[in-house]
Amino acid sequence: EYEKLKSELKKSLATRNKLEDEFERLEQEIYEKETEYFSGNNATSNTGIAGNRFSYGGNIIKGFDGFNKSHHHSAGHDSHNRGFNNDDRIFSLSSAIFVKQQQ
């Protein structure tokens, strides 16, 4: 019974290690997706109008007000182009572990 319990404990520890790896992988993926999304460097940023390629992204944090209008201006004059900083990473920042690591 002792050996059986030991064996089960070892399995549980191995499962926990896998879960910890999965957690880290997800945190990393969230971070990378944020970078891709908020810096507007996605390949789908195309209005379909020939010759025009607007970079936009991050409406989930800056809101959708004026969304319609902002796509009639060129990216350089986009009044909603407020840049991107680490405080915008609301998804990553929802993890206290991430916040601690940043600190």
Partner: peptide, 28 residues
Amino acid sequence: ELEHAKDMALLVARREKVTLDLLEQNMR
């Protein structure tokens, strides 16, 4: 925009589920 937001919301939901699994595993 919505697809990106959904992808990230899904990742966050997965992360929280894994965290719950981790907690249960720690209790075990």
